[in-house]
Simulated assay, not measured.
Amino acid sequence: MKLLKTIPVITFLSVVLIIFIMVIFLEIGFGIELRHQPLKSLVYFGLLGIAPTLFVISLYNLNRKPFFGGVLSLLVLLGIGFQGPLNIVFASSIWKTQKILKKLPQFPNQQIELQFQDVGAFGYNRRTVKATYFAGVFMKVREVKNETLK
């Protein structure tokens, strides 16, 4: 009877974990970032919370069917251990536009911006990017050197 109750939980947590991993890979691999702070925090802190929970539930059901959730959560836990949980917490902060350096008239949703990211007690990170806004929640960024602006 307990198997019937835990399989949907493991499946649900596995799907949510896969969605969170895909959003993080979009940010890391393709430069597509979340602009909405609560959503970005949900993804990063959800990754930190769901992976251990799914691993423990999968260990509890080790001799039963759902094996994928345990392997997936173990790989995510290894990645968190390799990257460091504190780095993941600091990466959960969004980049905020400090100043718009240049608007591109031919593309109304693109602009070159100076952005800052709060990293807690370590101060701020700073970057100059060409930002393309779309879908209200996402932006695609590409680093721009300051020499190219002149």
Rank of each mutant, 00 (worst) to 15 (best):
His36Ala: 09
Lys150Asp: 11
Thr128His: 06
Thr148His: 09
Leu114Val: 05
Lys5Thr: 09
Lys96Ser: 11
Lys65Val: 05
Ser41Pro: 06
Phe107Tyr: 14
Gly49Met: 14
Glu147Gln: 11
Ile112Ser: 06
Ile10Gln: 13
Ser93Pro: 00
Arg126His: 07
Val76Arg: 02
Lys5Gln: 14
Pro66Asp: 00
Leu74Cys: 09
Val56His: 00
Val119Asn: 03
Ile94Lys: 02
Pro85Gln: 07
Val144Lys: 14
Leu26Ala: 08
Glu113Gln: 15
Ile100Lys: 10
Val16Cys: 07
Leu42Met: 14
Phe20Asn: 06
Phe134Ser: 14
Val119Thr: 04
Phe45Cys: 07
Leu47Met: 14
Leu47His: 06
Phe68Tyr: 09
Lys150Cys: 10
Leu101Ile: 15
Lys145Glu: 11
Thr97Glu: 12
Arg64Glu: 07
Phe20His: 00
Glu143Val: 15
Ala121Ile: 14
Pro38Asp: 05
Ile19Pro: 03
Met22Val: 13
Ala91Val: 06
Leu114Thr: 02
Asn125Lys: 14
Met22Ile: 14
Pro85Trp: 09
Arg127Tyr: 07
Leu34Asp: 06
Gly46Phe: 03
Lys2Cys: 10
Phe25Gly: 06
Gly120Lys: 06
Phe116Leu: 15
Val141Gln: 13
His36Cys: 10
Gly136Arg: 14
Glu33Tyr: 11
Phe45Trp: 09
Phe55Cys: 05
Phe116Thr: 12
Val43His: 03
Phe107Gly: 09
Lys96Tyr: 00
Trp95Thr: 01
Phe25Ile: 07
Thr11Trp: 09
Leu86Ser: 08
Leu13Pro: 05
Ile94Glu: 03
Leu77Tyr: 01
Val15Gln: 07
Val9Met: 13
Glu113Phe: 08
Phe122Met: 09
Met1Thr: 12
Val129Asp: 02
Asn61Glu: 10
Arg142Met: 10
